[in-house]
Simulated scan of single mutants.
Amino acid sequence: MKKVLILGLCYLMASYHVLAQQKEMIYVNANSGNDDAAGSQMTPLKSLFEAAKRVNKLAGKGSIQVFLSEGTYGLAETATFNPTQWVFSKQDRLEIRAEILPDSSAWEPNKMPIIVSTMPFKLERDDKKVITGGSNYGILIESSHATIQGLRILGEPVHEKPKAGVLVRNYPIVWEGKNLSDLRVTQCQFLGNQFALPNHLGILSNGKQLEVDHCVFYGVKDAVVMWNAPAEQSSMHHNLILNSYGAAVWTWSTTPDFKFYNNVMSGINVLWVLEKEAKNAFQIQNSMVIGYNQLVNQGGGPQDFGTPADPKKLMYGSDFVLQKTGGLSIEEDQTSRYYLQIKPGTLGTSYGAGLFYKSSNEK
Rank of each mutant, 00 (worst) to 15 (best):
Asn243Phe: 15
Glu211Ile: 04
Phe81Met: 08
Ala223His: 03
Gly354His: 00
Phe305Asn: 04
Glu156Gly: 07
Ala38Tyr: 02
Ser47Ala: 04
Tyr137Gly: 00
Met13Thr: 08
Lys90Val: 15
Gly165His: 04
Ile284Met: 11
Asn361Ser: 15
Gly219Pro: 04
Glu277Ala: 13
His214Tyr: 08
Ile6Ser: 14
Ile115Cys: 03
Ile26Leu: 10
Gly133Ser: 13
Lys259Ser: 08
Val270Phe: 02
His238Met: 03
Pro230Ile: 08
Ala37Val: 12
Lys358His: 13
Gln294Thr: 15
Lys128Asn: 14
Gly150Val: 08
Glu24Pro: 00
Ser69Arg: 02
Thr307Phe: 12
Leu295Trp: 13
Glu277Arg: 06
Leu197Cys: 10
Thr186Gly: 10
Leu167Gln: 15
Phe49Glu: 10
Leu340Thr: 06
Ser360Thr: 10
Tyr261Gln: 12
Arg169Asp: 07
Asn193Gly: 00
Asn170Ala: 07
Thr307Gln: 13
Leu94Asp: 03
Gly192Phe: 08
Leu45Arg: 00
Val130Thr: 13
Pro102Trp: 13
Lys279Glu: 12
Tyr316Thr: 06
Val18Gly: 07
Pro230Gln: 07
Val66Leu: 01
Pro311Ile: 14
Gly60Leu: 12
Glu331Ile: 07
Pro256Gly: 07
Asn56Cys: 06
Gly352Ile: 09
Glu232Val: 11
Ser350Asn: 04
Ala51Val: 10
Lys363Trp: 09
Lys23Cys: 12
Ile153Gly: 02
Val216Glu: 00
Pro172Gly: 04
Ser32Glu: 07
Ala278Gln: 06
Leu101Ile: 13
Gly71Gln: 02
Lys279Pro: 01
Ser253Ala: 14
Gly207Met: 06
Leu340Tyr: 03
Gln209Phe: 14
Thr147Ile: 15
Pro120Trp: 11
Lys23Ser: 04
Ile26Gln: 00
Val216Cys: 03
Tyr11Cys: 06
